[in-house]
Nucleic acid binder design. Structure first.
Length: 466
RNA sequence: GGCGGCAUAGCCAAGUGGUAAGGCAGAGGACUGCAAAUCCUUUAUCCCCGGUUCGAAUCCGGGUGCCGCCUCCA
């Protein structure tokens, strides 16, 4: 099966074919680190983490780059307000970012380049753009000349005419056209700045992605991704710059995810209706947040609600009990390899899982396959006779697809119980054997209060933490 | 004004021509000493009105409602 993805640039579902055989270069626009990230920001990071994991599962060698925008107007402003430096502010929120991502189970990118550490590359790019006539300098600023290339607007599917008509950008007399955008901004006195051939200043927003993706991934990317709202102008500008700079196509597949809504509105910092990850993960299991972000198709908008997260937590319990119960059953299972019928069923599930993911990365459907696997696991655990190999095979499937790819199934070290609790469980078993159910139930209730749930099965008592 | 998206059960959500996946919640049943867990069964005039078609949630036209981008924003 081939992976098919929806490409924003062509507005079509296309089969995915990287430039170089089994190597995939992907670049995902990372956060501007002037504040904590919210659940909407997290969607792109969690989703593309799954994309990356899935591509690796399919045998691709993925190089994943995600930048940090660590200098821009908002950072400068916030640092001033807080009486700190841009650098300190950025470092603080980069740390916070990684804490959030670790909690959400997002793997590190191969490279996390920072804008401030690539000023040289950006200056070089701007210099080339000037040389080629794609940029002009005005009083210490450098602007990109959007009208120079006819295809400006090709990503967001607007013609130059439409864009000109719709432009309601602030009047800036320095610009030749309102569609032009800053490559380099002259700094005000006291602001953080770098030297350049055009005087002291700092880079515009868009140029960093062009410069850093080129440095780490080359002129043409296989996948360039980000939130829908980056499509215009950010990505449009990146394409323009990069292609003007290198003369080569910038990205083969543009993937954009929809946003998280709060009620009826888009969740965004400017609207102030955000829910931060750092706060959510204190209240909910972070895995539930990850699940939530994967529960709908990535291009559809999704409404955030505490009710939904709560529902998801319940669903997650089923994954966990399935794993726990497999382990418990394995202890008394007889030796033996996985049965052919079981392997056949697992292959079927694998096919279904891949079909879902290959169809424009439909994680919602992939999750429903995960539930099928959980049901299969539960049915198997309930059998009176089952070889250990069968249970191990099912557990392995859940680990691989539910765990390694989706990051929703955990199968950690087996927990141990305090001696005191062990003793109580044993005492209850004796009471049950003596048919002293009052006593047995009293002990069970007591343990339940301490968060230990006991379940009696034909293979003996089973416990789990609530 | 230009461009684009969405509307499926109480809730979340797949599905883009062949009489509606999955999850949560609810109901009934099986299992259990009782539970729990699990399994089985069950719950939808697919926003409205037309049209195309043997056949439409799906395509076309027209409505209604909501949202996004065009300005910092995942």
């Amino acid at each position: 099966m081939t992976l098919h993805v929806y490409n924003t640039q062509t507005k079509k579902r296309e089969s995915f074919r990287p430039l170089r055989d089994k190597k995939v270069n992907m670049y995902v626009c990372g956060p501007t680190v002037y504040n904590y990230i919210h659940i909407g920001n997290a969607r792109v990071f969690v989703f593309f983490d799954v994309v990356r994991r899935y591509l690796e599962y399919k045998g691709y060698e993925v190089t994943y780059v995600q930048n940090f925008t660590d200098v821009d107007d908002r950072l400068i402003e916030t640092a001033q307000q807080e009486g700190t430096t841009v650098k300190e502010l950025a470092e603080r929120y980069i740390r916070a970012y990684f804490e959030d991502m670790d909690a959400l189970g997002v793997k590190r990118a191969d490279v996390h380049p920072k804008a401030t550490e690539h000023i040289g590359e950006m200056v070089e790019g701007i210099r080339i753009l000037l040389e080629k006539g794609y940029a002009y300098e005005r009083d210490g600023d450098v602007y990109y000349r959007a009208l120079k290339k006819e295809d400006y607007g090709k990503l967001s599917h607007q013609t130059l005419e439409e864009l000109k008509a719709g432009a309601r950008v602030e009047v800036n007399e320095k610009k030749e056209s309102p569609l032009d955008f800053a490559l380099w901004k002259k700094s005000k006195p006291g602001e953080i700045s770098w030297d350049s051939p055009w005087g002291k200043g700092r880079p515009g927003w868009h140029i960093e992605c062009s410069a850093m993706s080129k440095k780490y991934l080359g002129d043409t990317l296989d996948i360039h991704a980000g939130g829908m709202d980056l499509c215009f102008p950010h990505h449009e500008n990146e394409i323009a710059q990069s292609e003007a700079w290198t003369g080569k196509p910038f990205a083969r597949y543009w993937l954009h995810n929809g946003y998280i809504k709060m009620g009826n509105e888009k969740m965004s910092k400017s609207l102030g209706n955000i829910v931060r990850v750092v706060e959510l993960r204190e209240k909910y299991e972070p895995r539930a947040l990850r699940y939530f972000l994967l529960s709908a198709h990535y291009r559809n908008p999704v409404s955030f609600s505490f009710e939904t997260i709560h529902q998801i937590e319940r669903g997650l319990e089923r994954f966990d009990t399935a794993v726990t119960n497999l382990h418990h059953r394995m202890k008394t299972a007889e030796a033996g390899n996985a049965e052919p019928t079981v392997n056949k069923r697992l292959s079927e599930l694998t096919r279904e899982f891949e079909a879902a993911m290959d169809d424009d990365l439909n994680t919602a459907n992939a999750i429903s396959v995960l539930y099928d696997a959980v049901r299969f696991a539960n049915e198997t655990v309930a059998r009176s006779v089952v070889p250990r190999g069968t249970l191990a095979a099912i557990l392995g499937w859940l680990r691989q697809f539910g765990g390694e790819i989706l990051g929703l199934v955990v199968d950690g070290e087996e927990e141990s119980l305090e001696a005191e609790i062990e003793a109580l469980i044993e005492e209850r078993q004796q009471a049950r054997a003596a048919r002293d159910f009052k006593r047995a139930d009293a002990i069970r209730d007591r343990l339940a209060e301490r968060g230990i749930i006991l379940e009696d099965t034909p293979q003996g008592v089973r416990w789990r933490r609530k």
